[in-house]
């Protein structure tokens, strides 16, 4: 028996090309230009469900064989301790986002807390 995974797919009959799913996909799995039919690449889809909030209800879940997920998932390593955090695709997407400092992606949350305490210590002069 082959392993099954869940991915999302776009119903082309309903898609109006509003581009919303493209904008929210942090894994760059959605392709398509505004006002054209969009497609979700099952190889890249991680089934996070961010695109599911479709105004035309064109996006649905499907079960597919696990072998379709061919994309290699590379994850960002914390520069300080080496812990794995988000995927590199997410970091790419996030660094292009307005109001997000890409510097924050370099450390894991534990190391960021340690740095925050260190900075506070410097500010207080002790």
């Amino acid at each position: 028996m082959t392993e099954k995974i869940t991915v999302y797919q776009v119903d082309h009959a309903l898609c109006i090309g509003c581009h919303r799913c493209f904008k929210v996909c942090t894994y760059q799995a959605v392709s398509g230009n505004p006002k054209e039919k969009h497609t979700i690449d099952p190889a890249r889809c991680m089934a996070c469900g961010a695109c599911f909030d479709c105004p035309k209800k064109a996006i649905s879940k499907v079960e597919v064989e696990a072998s379709v997920r061919t994309v290699e998932i590379a994850r960002v390593r914390c520069e300080c301790c080496g812990a794995l955090t988000i995927t590199t695709a997410q970091a790419d997407w996030g660094s292009r986002r307005k109001g997000v400092n890409a510097e924050a992606f370099k450390l894991c949350d534990e190391c960021k807390r340690r740095r925050m305490v260190g900075q506070a210590r410097q500010l207080m002069g002790c």
């Binding site: 942090t26 988000i86 997410q90 970091a91 400092n101 949350d109 190391c111 807390r113 925050m116």
Partner: peptide
């Protein structure tokens, strides 16, 4: 209800205050 658990906020917080 909206959160999809993608951990973008955890990574983006400059202070590591999201869990």
């Amino acid at each position: 209800d909206k959160c999809v658990g993608c951990m973008m906020c955890v990574a983006a917080c400059p202070f590591g205050n999201i869990y």
